[in-house]
Amino acid sequence: MRSINKYVLPSAVSLITAMGVAAPAAQAFDFKVSGQVDRAVSVVDNGKNTDVGFVDNTGSNTRFRFTGDQMMSNGMKVGFDYEIGLGNNASASWDVKNSGNEQSTFLDNRQANIYLEGNFGRFTLGKVDGAANATSEVDYSGLTYLSGGVDFADYAGGLSFISKDGQVTSAKVGKVFNEFDALSRQNAIRYDSPTFNGTTLSASVDSGHAYELAARYATDFARGGKFAVAADYVDSQNQGEKYDPKKSLYVNGHRFREMGGSASLLLPSGIVFTVSGKHRDFVRYGKNSANNYFAGIGYVKGNNHFQVNYDRTDGAYMDGSKGNQYGLAYRRDWTKSIQLYASYHLYTASGLGTGVKDINQIYTGVRLKFM
């Protein structure tokens, strides 16, 4: 990977620079401002206490976005994407009887990149989705990020499991469960191929010599049916390591290798079948490997979206740990810009070193998008 960083990155940047300089603009720069506000209510019974949290939905947090693009005279397009999340009391951090972060504001620099697009595909440089981001989340139910789907830890990640004797444990939903969705957003250079017969190939080189590879396929068929699938391979390499001058080596690395994917089938009747599975091998993390399996059955009818789902994560918290999630979710598109959503989740866990009580959660909210 060091050779890739040394030779491929400068070459790609030089190519982008040369193309941009060689072609004058064919039209004025098109600029757009957009964003959303997404707030939710989380009602939780952790087996000892019941509490209510008024939170910002981490699944699709409150954000503002600035985008722009310009067509060049040679037919290529250059553009940028700058997006920042701004809110407080994130749902992935809130816990029962622990409202100390309600006044804290989070600032999430989600995207800050420029891209060049043409018949060769697309190169993107900057803060960007890693090539394999969202390969765990292919789902036509329309409920991913809005109380359903595989990323339920975004709604409940900060909830602590309570031991059988009533003590708060260090095991949280966000540690026991993990969808293993690659490396999320990264400072990177990313390439996406042109789509050929529904197939797109992607690759990115991220900070710390990490790299991500992904393949995606999507197709439509008779009377509104759809099918999509995504697969990835990720190696986090040196990401997260820090150099210790006393030992003359890098320490605290959490290197892992990941592979897997997800798929979703929308039938003409509106029934949706979704599955996701990921395997992660830990190279330096004090544990061996972990797996996540997700299955959902949904139904889409007009402005209504339903899903019942199940998730199982093994080995994410520690070797031998197991987590099970049972969920039921609904979304109503009130208008094109306003979505209402609600869900119920049951979280169970075992193999944590001590027995713990189940967690029950009702999660409901509204997302309002502008522009």
Rank of each mutant, 00 (worst) to 15 (best):
D319K: 10
Y7Q: 11
A218M: 04
M259R: 15
S93L: 11
D56N: 13
N303I: 14
L213T: 03
D281S: 10
D108M: 13
I4W: 11
K226C: 04
M19S: 04
T58Y: 11
V234A: 10
A153S: 01
D108R: 12
G320W: 07
T195I: 13
F31D: 02
E179V: 01
G261L: 02
F221C: 15
N49L: 11
M371N: 15
K226P: 05
G240K: 12
R255E: 06
V283R: 03
A188F: 08
F120L: 09
F29G: 10
L86Q: 00
Y155P: 00
K246W: 07
A22D: 02
G100E: 12
N57H: 10
D333Y: 05
E117C: 03
G100I: 07
G35H: 06
V43P: 09
T200M: 13
K301H: 14
I338D: 15
N113T: 11
Y293E: 14
S42F: 09
G47E: 11
G75I: 02
T364Q: 10
N119L: 00
A132Y: 02
E179Y: 00
A18M: 04
A203Q: 01
D358H: 10
D129F: 06
G148V: 09
S34F: 04
T169Q: 02
R284P: 02
T124R: 00
G320P: 01
S184Y: 09
D69H: 14
